[in-house]
Amino acid sequence: MSLSQPGFGARLAEAYRAYGQLCVGIDPHPGLLTAWGLNDDAAGLREFGRRIITAAAGRAAAVKPQVAFFESCGLGGMAALADIIAEAKQAGLLVIADAKRGDIGSTMAAYAEAWLNPQNDFGADALTVSPYLGFGSLAPAVEAAQRYRGGLFVLALTSNPEGQQVQLARREQEVAPGASSASTVAGHIASQVQQINTARPAPDGAAVGETAVGETALGDIGLVVGATTAPLASSSGIDLTAGRPALLAPGYGAQGATAAQLRSGFGSAWPQVLVNSSRAILEQGPEVADLIRAIEASQAELR
């Protein structure tokens, strides 16, 4: 890692221009491993990941390993994950570690170091994090992302229905006039991300997220907004374009959201969206050629 390299937002913007807005999930569900003729062990996980990387390289912007499936296989599973992250980066893919880490103080700093330091075994380009111990608890992760030119995707409006109980809860604190987006928990999270992306410079003095997708810029600190819950942002007064966060959108394909629904739901924020597809693509395996066809079909629909 060089401090002269662009930040995550800039790298993601470049990947959008080159490969489109698709992210392929690496989710080795035990049932999928069985369907692919692979064992639910380190060797099976490694082979599963390698086939997806082969299919996605040069065709998708990013891959997103779901960390839990590797953790469940113990030391061997985590060793397989380290290999997959390294191989994906070597293949030119951005890697988002879907670990949803959230803690405070030195513990959060240790999580960020583990997942964002490119010299570490699990060093990814970006990490999913949870702000529900208070957004300020993410400060060590934000600092690590800036130090290592990495990115964060902060859980905001997730696709699970029960998430709305917390995410759309009204905040008791007085909200300044015109700041309606901060009146809900998710709106407050979005406003905090906006402040980081617009106010904090990258280490070399360049603007955070400098490099455009079309006429827009992407910040290094992004949000997770489900493909099926994106309309809740506008109906709740949340401006997803403020600060130009990258928007990681799970829920396309097998979970029901179509490309047309994505474009409509995200509206003017659509150019910021990284669309994740997992099952809809992975169920077409195990042959790499079939995975490639599924990726290309998704890309065509998203364009």
Rank of each mutant, 00 (worst) to 15 (best):
G285W: 08
Y252S: 01
T258Q: 01
G267T: 07
P271E: 11
Q261H: 02
Q272F: 04
P271M: 09
G251V: 01
L291S: 07
S268W: 09
S277T: 06
F266M: 10
R279M: 07
S264T: 15
Q284W: 00
I292P: 02
Q261W: 05
W270A: 14
S277L: 01
Q255C: 03
A280W: 07
G251H: 00
A260R: 13
P271V: 13
E287G: 02
Q272C: 08
Y252I: 02
P286F: 13
L282M: 11
Q255K: 01
Q261A: 14
S264E: 15
A260P: 03
G265D: 07
V288C: 06
G253E: 05
S264G: 08
A280M: 04
Y252G: 00
G256R: 01
G267A: 07
Q284M: 11
R279G: 03
A280E: 13
A254E: 06
V275Y: 10
L282C: 05
Q261N: 02
E283L: 10
A257P: 06
L282Y: 00
L274N: 09
A259I: 04
L291R: 08
A289G: 12
G256T: 02
S277A: 15
L291Q: 08
V288H: 04
Q255P: 06
S277W: 01
S264A: 15
N276F: 09
V275M: 09
I292S: 01
P286L: 14
P271T: 11
V273Y: 09
R279C: 05
I281M: 11
L262D: 00
E283V: 12
T258Y: 06
A259S: 13
L262I: 15
L274R: 03
Q284R: 15
V288E: 12
S278G: 09
V288D: 07
S268D: 15
L274W: 11
L274G: 05
P271R: 11
N276Q: 10
S268Y: 11
G285I: 06
Q261Y: 05
A257Q: 06
G253R: 09
G253A: 12
R263N: 02
A289P: 02
A254W: 09
P286A: 12
F266I: 10
V275I: 11
A260G: 12
R263L: 03
S268P: 15
W270T: 14
D290A: 15
G265F: 11
S278T: 11
E287D: 15
Y252W: 06
A269H: 13
I281N: 09
E287Y: 03
S277G: 10
D290P: 00
W270S: 14
L291I: 12
L262E: 04
G265V: 11
S277F: 00
Y252R: 02
R263H: 13
A280V: 01
P286N: 13
G265T: 05
A289R: 14
I292V: 15
Y252C: 00
G256Y: 05
L282F: 00
A254T: 05
W270P: 00
